[in-house]
Design a protein around this nucleic acid. Structure first.
Lengths: 209, 209
DNA sequence: ACCAGATTTGAACGGCCGGTCAAGTTGGGG
DNA sequence: CCCCAACTTGACCGGCCGTTCAAATCTGGT
């Protein structure tokens, strides 16, 4: 049988990116060494530089790759939901770090922060970040447009509303991921839903028993 | 015995912190070397380690120091304004990177991002960040309470409203400081004012004429 | 079985930089 | 004026880590 040995080039490439993303999440960009990634991927350090021309390039690619993965998973899940209002709720569910138990601490947000800090100085990363962010706003705007078409949401510039809601999520998520004692996942979730309901003009079913 | 030269020592200490903050803003935390700080402060590298026990300590202190400075300047300015609504507007003015020309690009936000990334792994920095953030929310909440007392704003939990507005500012500021082509300072300012007016229940004077 | 090219290894190199230190300089008190 | 402690310097050390490279191994084709 073919042992585990033969790996296509593409597999290796992705394996290393996966390993790098894991290491960055765990140790932080600044503390990530090539040998850490090699260990995580189960290969020798030399091989990393065989597939990536430099450590910097590897880390940059890993960051956008990981954010890509997150985005794809999210939009896959959301596409399944028929109601725009429920789509929005689920997007918020997924965006609140640690809100849905099955998703762990949702450390993707930590990677975002690493992207930001790197984008401040790395033009390529700045470009990638802008695209990633645009896509994020876009997916919110799409939900809003769908809700407006179906009458679930009131009128208003969908892109502008998406910017506001998306930015609110960003700002709150930072504090939640930092384990701020005042800003719990529940509180973040509630804040997002309330602002969204006011901005989009729908009533929040208050869970009164 | 007698205190030796507390004044000069204190000056040096602060000079170095200032220099470090400048270097971090310019080059980023990851790229900041002790010798860079020494150059910026006009002293020898050895002296840096005479005043700070390690590079890590220095950088941590510099980050909180710089954010402190920003906060103090902001609250000094805001205290002068009588109307709560104008206080809020000015707080937003100051928070939008590059909105007020006289304040340059307001790179303090870049330092915030560095704080975040460091706070993810450094418990002391995490603690400091939480205090800094609490103070930031608090100063917004104070404005809101004043406005509610004077009748300028509607009712509502001031702390909750402050969290929402503060987080929105955070999330938007990130994108502005990244030079996102879609999120201009003007657009951020407008978004903040609109959400604030809706959340706080006051009318936005639409600039006619 | 053999070859050629692709893949993989790990040892070794070299630069960089945080931290140390011994030697100087300064300035105020006696 | 001298002395001592505080302050300041810059050379130096040592380790770390990104990168290189020659050699080993593997793979598929003939």
């Amino acid at each position: 049988m073919t042992a585990v040995r033969p790996k296509s080039t593409k597999d290796r490439h992705q394996e290393i990116l996966d390993a790098a993303a894991r290491v960055i999440t765990e140790r932080g960009l600044a503390e990530t060494r090539i040998s850490d990634v090699a260990d995580a991927a189960g290969v020798s350090p030399g091989l990393i530089l065989y597939y990536f021309e430099s450590k910097d390039r590897l880390l940059s690619e890993a960051l956008t790759y990981a954010n890509d993965q997150f985005y794809l998973r999210m939009s896959r899940e959301i596409r399944r939901i028929p109601s725009a209002r429920e789509q929005l709720r689920h997007l918020i569910d997924l965006s609140v770090p640690g809100y849905l138990p099955e998703y762990g601490r949702l450390d993707e947000w930590a990677l975002w922060i690493e992207v930001w800090v790197r984008a401040l100085r790395d033009p390529q990363m700045a470009k990638d970040r802008e695209l990633l962010d645009q896509r994020w706003r876009q997916s919110i705007a799409d939900i809003i447009r769908a809700g407006q078409a179906s009458g679930e949401f009131g009128e208003g510039d969908a892109d502008e509303l998406a910017l506001r809601i998306g930015s609110l999520i960003d700002g709150l998520a930072i504090q939640v991921i930092m384990n701020d004692s005042q800003v719990t996942p529940q509180r973040m979730h509630r804040a997002c839903m309330e602002v969204a309901s006011r901005e989009l003009g729908f009533a929040l079913e208050t869970a009164g028993a």
